[in-house]
Design a protein around this nucleic acid. Structure first.
Lengths: 212, 212
DNA sequence: ATTACTAATTCACGAGTAA
DNA sequence: TTTACTCGTGAATTAGTAA
């Protein structure tokens, strides 16, 4: 998992600059023998995770990146309320979302609930298969509800949504109650034309965060 | 450090609800024998870190709290620049925040936007003078907006907020649009009574992190 | 299919110590 | 003072297998 000695070195700041840390100190602080600390340090060097310089030990960028990845992943699992990250590819919708976003009632209701007038179009992203489970977990959180209405003898259903952020732009993921999408496509609205604003085309890879 | 099997169970969501995970799966995913996975699971049960129910394995709150502490610490070391850290002293508010947090509409909107029902009270912290500049920088980030509403002929304004964490408890810093506070007092809401939960009294020194 | 026991094995640890 | 070697010991792991 996370190497105890490597984490210790990071705690001592060895990822910022070389730190003069003896194997005796490591042993004392981590409650192990000096011999073990020495051996572990050698192992870390052999696996390219730390380096020894005359100024002390340094954690390599590679090891740091790996550590960050692990901590990030744990963080996300432990604090799911801080935002679900998704990544996937831009795909073309059926133009249905765009049609909805042109209807004044929806526009008004979205403005009321989300605080922005949606651009008359949606961005459809086919999420990575490994994110589908996350999407299911997302749906266990209470959504923001855009009310439906009746217009010209036709029923327009409510829309469930969650705020999201894509490359700094705030928008929302929308789930029309009668959705035509499968589990792997998420539909996004925003105050601007996301395709244009973010220079996205079909098959563009992108990532975004959803806030339940 | 961080137990590999425990982290695996968290990755599988066993801290949210019981997860049907076999020792064989653990063994396969973590590259160990089924026997070792079984033994480690038993050890985790003995140390009170997981429980086995007919519905699957569950990570206990105690183990989760411990894990969060460790991850938080690493997070802080790895990303010293992330999150705005504030420190200051607890002060008494005018009871205005508490009044707001008792109003159903605000409670509903907060639950919707932040994912928790706020305790009917706020914690006011007078931040250190050197943190005031940080507070100004914070306001340049897009806030989460709690919608206002009209009730009994009176307008209740929207509330701008940012998620925050104080001693492991997730909450939010709130900025009512018509705030009565100066620049040096921050008002915090959380799902629990922070004063009680963290044993804080007036003049208690405390610190917290705000996530823009 | 599971899980978890016992026995065999391996490999991690620390004592002693040299450099 | 360090660090890091060898080596004996024992804890951790796996194979085999029962339930």
């Amino acid at each position: 998992m996370i190497d105890e000695v490597l984490a210790y070195l990071v705690r001592r700041g060895a990822h910022l600059e070389p730190a003069k840390i003896t194997t005796r100190e490591i042993a004392y602080d981590l409650d192990m023998s000096q011999q073990t600390a020495s051996r572990k340090a050698i192992e870390l060097i052999k696996s390219g995770k730390i380096e020894r310089t005359p100024e002390g030990m340094v954690v390599t960028g590679k090891a740091l990146a790996e550590l960050k990845r692990t901590v990030d992943e744990l963080q996300k699992m432990l604090y799911p309320e801080l935002g679900f990250e998704f990544s996937g590819k831009v795909v073309s919708g059926l133009g249905e979302g765009a049609r909805f976003m042109k209807i004044q009632q929806y526009k008004d209701n979205i403005k009321k609930q989300l605080g922005f007038v949606p651009y008359a179009g949606t961005l459809n992203v086919k999420i990575n298969p490994e994110d589908v489970e996350k999407r299911l977990r997302l749906k266990t959180h209470p959504p923001i509800i855009i009310n439906g209405f009746r217009l010209a003898g036709k029923d327009f259903g409510k829309i469930l949504c969650y705020r999201c952020k894509i490359r700094g732009i705030q928008g929302a993921i929308v789930f029309p109650v009668r959705s035509t999408h499968g589990l792997n496509v998420l539909e996004m609205i925003a105050p601007v034309n996301l395709r244009k604003e973010l220079s996205l085309t079909d098959q563009s890879w992108t990532e975004f965060v959803v806030y339940p």
